[in-house]
């Protein structure tokens, strides 16, 4: 993916750039809002990673608003030191697609970057999602594996749907909390792990190949064993 990073802190920028490059993306970096806006408006990017507060007269919010005003739909991930919920809502209202509060783990950033970058493809209306022999029917809201029906609760269905829409990508616990539970806080106990392991048991019972994998220090990923 071609990613534009607009971040004024050189250390954060270096660290993000290095990590994203190592993950196989090409990263352009600008250190102020004005240059960032020029770059974003002038060249095609798959994703913008923006600091919320930027020097140069154009802050992250303005930058996105301007781009959206020009009908530029490039996905935007905000990085910010402002953690208040209102701030998150403001960022999303301005046209941001996701929001990550500093300080963050790089794995979290990478997972979100990849989820956002591949989002348009995943949003093509589909009635069935398939990973290996696991099939999720969005119309009848049923789950089958190897032709065998698996009973899941509504929330588990949504959890599985989210994992399958991002099959082959790491999905972090925070992302699951936000997207599946609409929960924007950090629960003190790791409640997500329990839900995932319960779902995992249901899916893998009677099958020898696990589908949901735990990615150390990051989150979960659903994929076929051989793809690893």
């Amino acid at each position: 993916m071609r990613i534009l990073l607009v971040e004024d802190d050189p250390e954060v920028a270096r660290f993000v750039r290095k990590g994203l490059t190592e993950a196989g993306h090409s990263v352009e970096h600008r250190d102020n809002g004005r240059d960032g806006l020029f770059a974003a408006a002038g060249e095609p990017f798959d994703l913008l990673v923006l600091d919320r507060m930027l020097p140069g007269g154009v802050d992250g919010l303005r930058l996105v608003e301007t781009l959206r005003g020009q009908d530029n739909r490039t996905p935007v991930l905000f990085l910010t030191a402002l953690s208040a919920v209102d701030e998150r809502v403001r960022g999303l209202k301005a046209g941001g697609d996701d929001y990550l509060t500093k300080p963050f783990a790089f794995a979290e950033l990478l997972a979100r970057v990849e989820a956002l970058g591949r989002r348009p493809a995943a949003e093509v209306p589909a009635t069935k999602l398939r990973v290996a022999d696991l099939e999720l029917d969005l119309l009848s809201r049923s789950v089958t594996r190897g032709g065998k029906r698996i009973d899941v609760q509504p929330r588990e269905f949504r959890l599985l749907e989210h994992l399958m829409r991002h099959a082959g990508q790491v999905v972090t616990r925070t992302m699951l909390l936000e997207k599946v539970w609409d929960y924007h806080f950090d629960p003190q106990t790791n409640v997500i792990d329990v839900h995932v392991s319960r779902l995992r048991q249901k899916l893998d019972r009677g099958f020898d190949k696990p589908l949901i994998h735990t990615v150390r220090n990051a989150g979960y990923m659903i994929r076929t064993e051989d793809a690893a």
Binding site: R155, W181, D182, Y183, P187, T189, V191, V194, H195, S197, R198
Partner: peptide, 13 residues
Amino acid sequence: ADAAELYEAIAEA
């Protein structure tokens, strides 16, 4: 209900 649902699994565990 959401909160209960979120914690139900961990309670069970």
